[in-house]
């Protein structure tokens, strides 16, 4: 489990698959998910393998999640915002929905 060395930055409330979570201002969506103990961000479209954030710099695309209904969002690049509804991305998704 990751822990925070300091609780700086304002609290931000969001949900993951409907579960209430809290992150901190300055977190990416991926960092906030990891801080909340989320292990699996998505399953792959080809083999259904479980994946999570890997590179954290927007290069590997393993951290794809659904944010506010929009699929294939790069969790590591997107700053966490109040009220975001984040969902695990299961397999292949139409990016428009």
């Amino acid at each position: 489990m990751f822990e925070r060395l300091e609780e700086s930055g304002a609290e931000i409330a969001f949900t993951f698959d409907g579960r209430p979570c809290t992150g901190r201002a300055g977190d990416s969506v991926a960092a906030a998910l990891i801080a909340n103990g989320v292990k699996v961000f998505r399953t792959t479209p080809v083999g259904g393998a479980e994946r999570s954030a890997f590179c954290m710099i927007g290069a590997c695309f393993d951290c794809l999640v659904v944010i506010d209904g929009r699929a294939s969002r790069q969790a590591c690049l997107i700053p966490l915002q109040e009220g975001m509804a984040v969902e695990r991305q299961i397999g292949r998704r139409d990016p428009a929905r």
Partner: peptide, 23 residues
Amino acid sequence: DLPGVLTVGAAQTLLKASSMVAR
């Protein structure tokens, strides 16, 4: 590729941006 295995750079990003460390 296992969920939870990160790159060293990713761990450093979590430390820099969110002051997060792993035990």
